[in-house]
Design a protein around this nucleic acid. Structure first.
Length: 926
RNA sequence: GCCGAAGUGGCGGAACUGGUAGACGCGCUGGAUUCAAAAUCCAGUAAUGGCAACAUUGUGUGGGUUCGAGUCCCACCUUCGGUACCA
């Protein structure tokens, strides 16, 4: 990798594949000609192909990033060839922490560094030759963009989710309802009696964007709130300062209102089962019942959630989470010391520790008892960390007979166990098996199967007014506040503490300039220090939190449809034309976060009739990660001597990563290595056959492992077309695969072979106009069939392989006919657009190959009249014979039985059976 | 633990609904060309045995279904991704 060759040229430069000149030339030409400009065309079917837009980091792109972009580029170019109006845009997710962190360190305005990084990314992307319509680029940090992010937030704030309508409705409809008939726990008269502030607090409980209190990661030393990934093992990642939970008022989005719709709509989407399953698990719907247990001492009803109300008679104790609000009031004097000790222990345990050992049973008795709602028996109330405060009601009824954790707990503390499911008919059934068994020891439920008992138990709970059917979700409402500078400001002002929207005419609310991007130290965002911006008037202050990173990315695909619109976030006509994203490509790391938020925003906008489709992404594909291939050197312990890979076993060595740019073909550049780091200046080497061999390891491509390959390097050395072909040829799109620059030669040679097809060394004659041979046509049409089918199923590795086969065969046939080579260029052009455009113009065309129709498959060229039958004897391949496909099965059988090899294996015996599959195989059973 | 994906030559990988395992490419070996190198071209390349024809073995492991299994079924092992005491 260290020494890049000059471009591939020998003599007669014009007849050689000079990729760097070709690529530059056509990129400029496409730009000038506006070849990739798209608009709505009612005469064409539409196709919307989308990539997850990147965050423009300072590091630039590595070869792993464009994998998905190349795939969608090929797909979108193919769709252009097949007559579609194709929307394939690109933009930037430009708000985020790294730019802000850089600003804190250097004082550079994040807008400035973001713009620089976008320029770097754009240059890198342009070099690869994508068919983006750059005039549609969106940047989430651009005020023209984020005014609409703010606008959508305004809609979320001014709507509530009406469960009766199953859709979002204006908050005024709820107000009207309160005026007319009151709410769930107040009458119309009581509503009327409330002051505005109180009324607003009630409404806040319904808005889809609302304020509530939540714990954040607060770091006193840094004076700021930290994101989850900035906290490692309870201390800040930077500086290692302690981080504590702190309650702060935060904005939330009520995504839980849409939980059921988000879950149900998954079925109709063309996403991988794995991806759907991740979303289902994240939403985590479970059906069951809530039930209230009265306490023996004092009036402290405990509400629990259970998915197994049928086992209520088996509930022998209750368990509260250590953080449950009733823990203090239910702890008796005798138990207070033990409980206090346990609570101290529980709060000292990090999430990580709690996760690590789920086998250890811990808990403490509160001293109090609850009353069993059906039997009236007293049952003890325990406190244990295996019950989570954040899920359900933070309290459970423990049924040791039918829950493994409850069972382990009961065993450990000697609590009673009542069997309530009779599984005697099914001796192999395990605890928690819901599919078999009849209720016993359960009063009115006795003898019922489990499902019937669940229904009966819920009915009884509802009848007695102590519980009800309930659906519970794991999904939480999404925290939407960040105490940061570099994000969208909220379009919110507080009038004497009551939040209200700024008028629409005041949008966008621009980020103020600040003197310092450092946290204020009191938990507020840096923009709180811009006092003249915050204080609009006495008693009228702006919100100083900003929106999180996912705000801008939750609707960006809609903006691409109509990026310049100043009247609306998208023109409804344009939205109706482009509709759903037909193919969405991106990394699996966004499987739950981004994809769930985006679906939620889209469902909401759909409720408001602002978009025409409930679901934004019809087909979603996750591209696999391209891994790096790291190089390793082996330092002999306690020395500055390095042993070559083959010698390392003889010594006690430490493997160290070395920059792959100092390694070629696993051989280390010794001078380069000594110059690389001061500490290696005097390094000594133990060589093998005169060279130092490095070890290698496949791992994530990362600066940290010095194994990053930049696409620019590859473009310099081989060209963008080779990069594109190689990335696709590497393996299936959705699989993780290692990048090995050594393998790229094959793709480069392939393109050179394509070039030679048009410009053979020994033949300077122009392309032949006469009719091609049947063999050449057969090769062409086989390629058309395979490439087309493979692009449709996104199997680009085998499509490239099919093109290689075609080029090899046409080279062998010395085919130079226009009628074959012209369609071949179009087949190749989605994969390698630059060389294709050059060859296309080279054979006399003036217009772009991009705009050509895809070659029409003629099946008649694929038809064969004979087939070489493999003949197996007892399933083992023994012979082959070419036979006409016109023969019937009896004729084939007869021909096979005459074969010498078959007779030899029959060894004089008559065959037991002969299986003839026409056009496939013959199997002789002896 | 649970959910999902995947285990095929020295390497990346191919094989449609069960029908010639290893397409295509890398690498490697030999040869041509060259003063030499690069580049290019030709031949070979799963393993084992054999000059060869050919034979035996072979798609993570062990069973099974089938005329026939990389592909289907059962059990298990390993790797990767997600998730995590979810009541």
């Amino acid at each position: 990798m260290c020494s890049f060759n000059q471009n591939w040229t020998t003599t007669g430069a014009s007849m050689d594949y000079d990729f760097s000149a070709i690529e530059k030339k056509w990129q400029d030409w496409w730009q000038e000609q506006g070849v990739y400009r798209v608009s709505e065309d009612p005469d064409k079917p539409k196709c919307y192909v989308l990539d997850m837009f990147p965050y423009p980091s300072g590091a630039g792109l590595h070869v792993g990033h464009p994998l998905g972009y190349i795939a969608t580029d090929i797909y979108s170019r193919y769709k252009r060839h097949t007559g579609h109006a194709v929307l394939h845009p690109m933009g930037f997710d430009a708000f985020g922490l790294p730019a802000e962190q850089y600003a804190i360190e250097t004082g550079q305005h994040p807008a400035r560094t973001t713009a620089d990084n976008i320029a770097t990314f754009t240059n890198q992307l342009r070099r690869i030759g994508f068919d983006y319509d750059w005039s549609r680029q969106v940047v989430t940090a651009d005020p023209d963009y984020y005014r609409w992010t703010q606008w959508i937030f305004c809609q979320l704030f001014s709507h509530w989710y009406d469960p009766d309508a199953g859709a979002a409705r204006p908050i005024e409809t709820l107000q009207a309802q309160f005026i007319a008939q009151g709410g769930s726990d107040f009458s119309a008269a009581e509503w009327a009696a409330m002051d505005n502030q109180r009324q607003q607090e009630v409404l806040m409980g319904y808005r889809l964007a609302y304020l509530d209190y939540a714990d954040v990661n607060w770091c006193e030393a840094l004076g700021t709130v930290l994101a989850n990934d900035e906290v490692k093992d309870g201390v800040s990642e930077r500086g290692g300062h302690p981080v504590v939970r702190k309650r702060m008022r935060q904005w939330f989005l009520r995504i839980t209102a849409y939980a059921d719709r988000l879950l149900n709509a998954l079925d109709a989407l063309d996403w991988s089962p794995a991806l759907k399953e991740m979303q289902r698990n994240w939403i985590g719907r479970s059906e069951g019942a809530s039930c209230v247990f009265r306490t023996k001492e004092g009036n402290h009803p405990i509400e629990i959630f259970t998915t197994r109300p049928d086992t209520l008679f088996g509930a022998t104790f209750l368990v509260l989470a250590p953080e449950h609000s009733l823990v203090a009031s239910l702890t008796t004097a005798e138990q207070s010391a033990a409980v206090a000790q346990y609570l101290a222990y529980a709060s000292s345990r990090s999430e990580r520790e709690r996760m690590a050992d789920t086998k250890t049973v811990t808990g403490v008795f509160s001293g109090s008892y609850a009353e069993h709602p059906f039997s009236g028996e007293p049952i003890p109330i325990w406190i244990a960390e295996y019950v989570l405060a954040g899920y359900g009601t933070g309290a459970i009824m423990a049924v040791p007979s039918d829950d493994n954790r409850d069972y382990a707990f009961a065993q450990h503390y000697g609590l009673p166990i009542i069997e309530v499911i009779d599984r005697s008919e099914h001796p192999t059934a395990e605890r928690e098996d819901k599919s078999v068994g009849l209720l016993m020891n359960s009063g009115f439920l006795n003898g019922m199967p489990i499902n019937a008992a669940i229904q009966a138990a819920i009915a009884e709970l509802e009848h007695r007014g102590i519980g009800q059917r309930r659906v519970n979700y794991r999904l939480r409402d999404a925290g939407f506040s960040r105490q940061r500078y570099w994000g969208e400001p909220f379009p919110i002002v507080y009038r004497r503490g009551v939040p209200e929207l700024v008028p629409e005419s005041a949008l966008p609310v621009l980020l103020p300039e600040v003197n310092s991007y450092r946290p204020t130290g009191d938990g507020n965002s840096p923009i709180a220090s811009a006092r003249e911006w915050v204080e609009l008037a006495p008693g009228l202050e702006r919100e100083t939190d900003t929106m999180p990173g996912y705000a801008g990315s939750s609707w960006y695909w809609l903006r691409y449809m109509d990026p310049g619109n100043r009247q609306a976030f998208v023109d409804p006509k344009k939205e109706q034309y482009w509709g759903q994203v037909d193919l969405y490509m991106g990394g699996a790391e966004h499987a739950v976060g981004h994809l769930l938020y985006s679906r939620f925003w889209n469902q909401f906008l759909f409720d408001l009739n602002l978009v025409s489709q409930a679901e934004p992404f019809r087909k979603m594909v996750n591209q696999g990660m391209i891994q790096g291939r790291s190089s390793l050197v082996y330092r002999i312990e306690g020395s500055n001597t390095f042993a070559s890979a083959g010698l390392k076993e003889q010594y006690n060595t430490t493997a160290l990563h070395v920059d792959i740019h100092l390694v070629e073909d696993d051989k280390l550049d010794l001078q380069g290595f000594r110059a690389w780091r001061d500490e290696y200046q005097n390094a000594e080497f133990l060589l093998e056959e005169g060279v130092y061999r490095c070890g290698a390891e496949v791992e994530k491509m990362s600066k940290r492992w010095y194994n990053v390959v930049n696409p620019d390097e590859v473009c310099d050395r081989y060209g963008a077309d080779t990069l594109r072909i190689y990335e696709m040829f590497l393996g299936p799109l959705d699989q993780a695969k290692p990048w090995d620059t050594r393998g790229i030669d094959g793709s480069f040679r392939f393109l050179k072979k394509v070039w030679r097809l048009f410009y053979p060394r020994e033949n300077k004659a122009p392309i032949a106009e006469e009719a091609p041979s049947t063999e050449a046509l057969k090769v062409l049409h086989r390629a058309i069939a395979k490439v087309q089918a493979d692009i449709e199923r996104l199997a680009f590795n085998t499509a490239v392989s099919a093109l290689m086969v075609a080029v090899n065969e046409l080279t062998a046939l010395k085919c130079r006919n226009r009628a074959v080579l012209e369609p071949l260029i179009i087949l190749l052009s989605p994969f390698a657009p630059h060389i294709s455009e050059e060859l296309w113009h080279g054979i006399g065309h003036q217009t772009s190959v991009v705009l050509q129709p895809f070659p029409q498959l003629n099946e008649s060229f694929l038809a064969e009249d004979s087939f070489e039958y493999p003949i197996s004897v007892n399933g083992k391949l023994r012979d082959k014979v070419a036979l006409s496909l016109a023969l019937n099965e009896a004729q084939i059988e007869a021909a096979v039985l005459q074969r010498d090899l078959v007779l030899k294996w029959l060894d004089g015996k008559a065959p037991k059976k002969i299986i003839v599959v026409k056009g496939k195989i013959v199997n002789v059973v002896v």
